[in-house]
Nucleic acid binder design. Structure first.
Lengths: 118, 118
DNA sequence: ATCGTACGCTACCGATTTTGTAGCATGCCG
DNA sequence: CGGCATGCTACAAAATCGGTAGCGTACGAT
């Protein structure tokens, strides 16, 4: 059974759930991102908030089980929040994170072309 | 059984292995990163090349099974390469990718402090 | 030549994670 | 009330990952 919602905080405070055992923030972050749908969720929320079901649709109908697990983890991490009216959306911290992730889009486009033309 | 080494190219050319089914580069990239150890491997190689065994040690002794799977995928993606003399290292493309990923480190540090002091 | 060692990599199997489907409880609005 | 959308969970099957052992090659030292 996965840890409750304080997973990320636990990990950062010295516990370890999986992956990095050092507790260094960058390692915890890299490990958190190395879970299916995690980055994708953040990405889909980059421009607008969405209900959990809209989010699921945006994520190729990923199974609600994992999706909710990720949503818990991302909430524990402080990247997203659930606002009763508008659904899931990025927090201020989440938006900061997205800014650092945004250049990936341009890179991905160049990369796609490079691979296809091989 | 996982696809051979052209996994990423297949996916980008319209096939689908898992995760995103659109084939848009950003989705394929986000899906590729959502696998255990993938980002960590890139991160550990950011400053120097390493032999596969040193890399394994750097990645908390991750199991060689998955590690080699990731290494195959990352090679197929063109981000890393195996140089007989020096081991695994980033390609030019891989270095470009790392540059877009580097701001994460600073963010992670701020994030770690924010979470711990909650 | 024969060790000893390190390398990249694979096989195997048990453990964990993810998927897919169904469904619950709540709230809202006609 | 009845219909509908929401956030979320249960459960079994499938896929992925972890941990250990070990293979085949290369290279340097004895």
């Amino acid at each position: 059974m996965p840890k409750p919602a304080s997973l990320v905080r636990n990990q950062l405070k010295g516990g370890h759930v999986r992956g990095s055992r050092t507790g260094r923030p960058i390692m915890v972050l890299l490990d958190l991102f190395g879970r299916r749908w995690c980055l994708r969720i953040l990405w889909e929320l980059r421009e607008q908030s969405m209900t959990s079901r809209a989010l699921r649709a945006a994520c190729d109908e990923a199974s609600p089980t994992v999706l909710n697990q990720r949503l818990k983890e991302l909430r524990a991490a402080g990247f997203i929040e659930l606002v009763p009216a508008s659904g899931y959306g990025l927090t201020d911290l989440g938006r900061e994170l997205l800014v650092t992730l945004l250049p990936l889009h341009r890179f991905a486009e160049r990369w796609g072309k490079a691979i296809k033309s091989q």
